[in-house]
Design a protein around this nucleic acid. Structure first.
Length: 498
RNA sequence: GGAGAGGUGGCUGAGUGGUUGAAAGCACCGCACUCGAAAUGCGGCAUACGUGAAAGCGUAUCGGGGGUUCGAAUCCCCCCCUCUCCGCCA
C-alpha cells in the first residue's frame, strides 16, 4: 500500500521505482499521472460531499429547533431545502466511493502496485542480474553425487509414490530416521533463533482471513498461489429467510414507487412485484456468495503472514521495538505458476515446514535489523556446515512487498549449483500501511507506521535436501551434521535398514 | 450445533431518534495551593481525512458494512468478535 501524500510530494521517485520493477518508464510515468488525476478527482468529490453534508447538518439542527418551538412551517421549509441537497449528496457520494475504491480500496491501484526498491538495490530484470555479496564454504568434492530422491529412496525413508496415491504430485512421505531428521532440523533451528538470537517463539494460526493475506501482500494479486478452505456449513434457514426478506422488501418498495402514478390493476402490481423478486433472487444469491467468501480461510504460504499480522491494527509502544518473532510451521503453496519446474524431489512441494523470522521495528531501525536477520539465517547454514552464497536481489527479482531482499542459496551437489534456501526482506512500511500497524513513543502524540521484516531461518524441507546431498557417501549413507546429532539421540549416520 | 447476553473514548461506564464527539468517574498533562509531596481546586486531554501559509474551519468515526429518516450511538438487515448455559469433539 502506497502513501498517496508521498506520491504527491515526489512523483518522480515512484516513476523511478516502478519502472525498475516490470514496467517501462513510459508505463510508470502514465501510471503515476493516472493516480494523481484520480486523487485529484477524489478530493474534488470529497469536498463537494462535505460541503453538502455541512449544509444538511446545519439544516437538520435548525429543523430540530423549529420542531421544538412548534414552528412546523419553518421545519417544512428546511426539509424541502435538504431535499434539494440530496441529489448532490447521492451523486457525489457515489462518485467518492467509486473513486476511493479505485484509488485506495482493497483492489485499488495503491494496493496493487509493488513496493519501491531501496536506493542501494541493483537494477535488473530477473534473477540473472542478482549480485553475489558473499560466499561461505567450499562445495564438497563428491564423485557422481546422487540426488536426494535416490538417496532417500535408497534408504527406504522417502516415499513419493505413497504420497502421490493419497495426495497427488508435490507431496512426500518421510519415514524412520529421515522423518526424525526433519523434526531435528526444525527443533535445532528454532532453538538457535530463540536461545541464541533472541527471537520469541510463537505458535500461530495456519488458517487466516482475507484481511491478513491482504496485510502482507499475498492478496489481492497473488490469490492463485494460495490454497483456500471453506467450511461446508450452509447458511441457516433463518439467515436465508432474513436475506430474502430484505431483498423482497427492497423489491416491493421499488415496484410500488415505479407504479405509484399508474395503479391500473392489482394484477399489474403483482406481476411487477413478482418480476422484481425474481431479479432480486439473483441479487440474493450474489449476497449469499459474498457471505461464503467472508467465511473462507486461506492456508498460510509462510508464517510471515501470521507473525507479521500479530501487530495489525495495533499501536505498539516504541520501547518494545524491535519485536523479534519466530515460528516453525507448515507452509502451503499451490505452485500454480510452476508446473513443470522442480517436479522431481522435494525442492518444490505443496506443503513444507519452515522456521520463519519476523521483526517489527521502528522506521530508523529496519536497515540494521535486516543485516542482523541475514546473519541470523546464515548462522544456521554455518552451524550445519553447508556451503552457501548470499545474493542481493535486483529490482526485477524482488517480491511484491519488499524494498530490499537478500537470498541465501545452498550448494546442491546433484544439481551442481546453488539453490534458494532462505529469502530475507525488509518491507519498510509497505505492509504496515496495509495492516494499519503503528508505533508510538511514550508520552508523545503522533503515531508512525512500523517497519516489517521477514526471512526464512530456514526452509526445513530444502535444508533436509541439502543435508542429504552434501553429506552422502559412496555407499548411499548420509552423515548427520554434528549439531543435529543431539537431536537424533546421538545417531551419526542415516543408513539402510536403520 | 441449540438458547441467551453483549461490543460506546487509554480504562470503567451513562446515554434508546434532534445543538451528543458523546455524561460521570479513573488514568494522564498543565496551572494554582505547598519548602516539597499528598490532598484539594481550576483547566486541558480521541483518531482519520479534506481545506488552509498558519490559526482555524469542515466531514467522518460509538465492533464492521448496508438501510430507514430532514436528522441515527439510539430503529431495521447482514457480517465479525466476546461472554453464559446446553450439546458435540481433538
Amino acid at each position: 500500500m502506497h502513501d498517496i501524500r508521498a506520491l504527491r510530494d515526489d512523483p518522480a521517485a515512484y516513476v523511478r521505482g516502478w519502472s525498475s520493477r516490470g514496467m517501462t518508464v513510459e508505463q510508470a510515468d502514465q501510471q503515476v499521472k493516472d493516480i494523481l488525476a484520480l486523487d485529484e478527482r477524489l478530493r474534488a468529490a470529497q469536498t463537494a460531499v462535505q460541503a453538502a453534508q455541512s449544509q444538511r447538518n446545519d439544516a437538520s439542527k435548525q429543523i430540530g429547533q423549529a420542531k421544538a418551538r412548534k414552528d412546523e412551517a419553518e421545519a417544512a421549509r428546511l426539509m424541502a431545502h435538504v431535499e434539494t441537497l440530496k441529489k448532490t449528496l447521492e451523486e457525489q457520494g457515489e462518485l467518492e466511493r467509486t473513486l476511493k475504491e479505485e484509488l485506495s480500496g482493497t483492489g485499488g491501484v495503491l494496493a496493487s502496485l509493488p513496493n519501491l526498491p531501496a536506493e542501494d538495490v541493483p537494477a535488473g530484470a530477473d534473477e540473472d542480474e542478482n549480485v553475489e555479496i558473499r560466499r561461505y564454504g567450499e562445495p564438497f568434492a563428491i564423485s557422481a553425487p546422487k540426488d536426494h530422491v535416490d538417496l532417500g529412496e535408497g534408504l527406504a525413508m522417502l516415499d513419493f509414490e505413497a504420497a502421490g496415491r493419497m495426495s497427488g504430485s508435490r507431496f512426500t512421505v518421510l519415514k524412520k530416521d529421515l522423518a526424525r531428521l526433519e523434526r531435528a532440523l526444525g527443533q535445532f533451528m528454532l532453538d538457535m533463533q530463540t536461545l541464541e538470537h533472541g527471537y520469541t517463539e510463537v505458535s500461530p494460526p495456519l488458517l487466516v482471513r482475507d484481511e491478513a493475506m491482504f496485510g502482507t501482500g499475498q492478496l489481492p494479486k497473488f490469490e492463485e498461489d494460495l490454497f483456500s478452505v471453506v467450511p461446508l456449513t450452509q447458511l441457516s434457514d433463518d439467515e436465508k429467510f432474513a436475506l430474502h426478506r430484505a431483498q423482497i422488501e427492497k423489491a416491493g418498495r421499488q415496484a410500488a414507487s415505479d407504479l405509484s402514478d399508474d395503479l391500473t390493476s392489482a394484477s399489474t402490481i403483482a406481476k411487477a412485484v413478482a418480476q422484481s423478486i425474481e431479479v432480486n433472487e439473483a441479487d440474493s444469491r450474489e449476497t449469499l456468495r459474498h457471505i461464503d467468501i467472508r467465511r473462507r480461510h486461506w492456508l498460510i504460504p509462510t508464517a510471515e503472514v501470521s507473525l507479521t499480522n500479530l501487530v495489525r491494527e495495533q499501536i505498539t509502544p516504541e520501547e518494545e521495538l524491535p519485536l523479534r518473532l519466530t515460528a516453525l510451521t507448515p507452509c502451503f503453496r499451490s505452485e500454480a505458476g510452476a508446473s513443470g519446474r522442480d517436479t522431481r524431489g522435494m525442492i518444490r512441494q505443496h506443503q513444507f515446514y519452515k522456521v520463519e523470522l519476523v521483526a517489527i521495528t521502528a522506521p530508523e531501525q529496519s536497515n540494521d535489523e535486516h543485516e542482523r536477520m541475514i546473519a541470523n539465517a546464515e548462522a544456521v547454514l554455518k552451524a550445519l556446515e553447508l556451503p552457501f552464497r548470499a545474493m542481493q536481489l535486483c529490482t526485477g527479482d524482488m517480491g511484491f512487498s519488499a524494498r530490499r531482499t537478500v537470498d541465501l542459496e545452498v550448494w546442491l551437489p546433484s544439481q551442481g549449483r546453488y539453490r534458494e534456501i532462505s529469502s530475507i526482506s525488509n518491507c519498510g512500511d509497505f505492509q504496515a500501511r496495509r495492516m494499519d500497524a503503528r508505533c508510538q513513543k511514550r508520552g508523545e502524540k503522533g503515531t508512525r507506521f512500523v517497519h516489517t521484516l521477514n526471512g526464512s531461518g530456514l526452509a526445513v524441507g530444502r535444508t533436509l535436501v541439502a543435508v542429504l546431498e552434501n553429506y552422502q557417501d559412496e555407499g548411499g549413507r548420509v552423515f548427520i551434521p554434528e549439531v543435529l546429532q543431539p537431536y537424533m539421540g546421538g545417531l551419526t549416520h542415516l543408513e539402510p535398514d536403520a
